[in-house]
Amino acid sequence: MLVKKKVASPKLAIDLQFASPAIESTLGKIASPTLIKKWVKSAIPLGGLITLRFVNTTEGKKLNMVFRQKDYATNVLTFPYDLSKNELVADIIFCLPVLQKEAKEQGKLLNAHLAHLIVHGCLHAQGHDHEVMKDAKKMEALEIQILEKLGFANPY
């Protein structure tokens, strides 16, 4: 009789950071740290370290200006530092007020929008992009597939 050995998943450390206690409290009403980490792990099959930082509009605008020369706060910024076949190191910044505004404007549940942008940022950290249509379609298909497995509807 053949016995299959279960291959252990690579160890992915996930660090959650909050710009303020108010941001942490607000986020806690949307999704627990355990749930957020589940969403990250669903999108990243690698080991390594990923930091998710949740910020206010002021910090979000400053980071977007410094790193992208854009004078507004954006929903998500991804900073990949190291990516190999087995490991990833990245920071992903989420501007919570922007996410809240977008969810309201788009008629989406806030937790669904947050899950989508977490998956989106995690895919960026792994080298996926949406600058050209072919790449955008591939990235969107991955997002839809991952979110569906998590119980969320197509965000597009």
Rank of each mutant, 00 (worst) to 15 (best):
K6D: 01
I14M: 02
V76I: 07
L142Q: 09
K134P: 01
A22T: 06
A13R: 13
V76T: 09
L110V: 14
P45V: 06
V89M: 11
V66N: 11
K61F: 05
H120C: 06
V3C: 12
L2A: 13
V40C: 03
H128A: 00
Q106E: 15
S20C: 09
K61W: 01
I146V: 09
L83E: 05
N111D: 15
I118R: 03
T74R: 10
K104Q: 14
R68Q: 11
D15C: 07
L99W: 04
T57S: 11
K61Y: 03
K41C: 07
D91I: 05
I23C: 10
G48R: 08
E131W: 11
N64S: 10
T26F: 07
Q126A: 02
L83T: 05
K138A: 13
F94I: 09
D71Q: 10
F54S: 08
S84H: 12
A13Q: 12
K61M: 02
K134F: 04
A141W: 00
K149W: 02
K37W: 03
F18E: 02
G121E: 04
A115S: 11
V89G: 04
G48W: 06
Q145W: 04
T58H: 00
L77M: 08
D15R: 14
L110N: 06
E59K: 08
G28V: 13
F79H: 08
H116F: 15
N154V: 08
I23E: 10
H120S: 12
P10H: 02
D82N: 14
P80D: 05
C95E: 02
T57A: 08
Q126I: 14
I30E: 06
S9W: 14
S42D: 12
L12Q: 01
Q106V: 05
H130T: 10
P10I: 04
H116T: 15
K134M: 12
I93Q: 00
K85C: 05
S9I: 01
S42V: 06
E102S: 11
L83A: 04
K138D: 10
K4G: 13
M65F: 07
E140C: 07
L46H: 02
E87V: 10
G60Q: 01
E140Q: 15
M65E: 15
L63W: 06
V76D: 03
V7Y: 02
Y156C: 11
E131I: 08
M133A: 12
T74E: 05
G107I: 03
K62P: 01
V40M: 00
K5D: 15
K108Q: 15
K4S: 08
G60I: 05
L96G: 03
K38V: 07
I44M: 03
D91H: 06
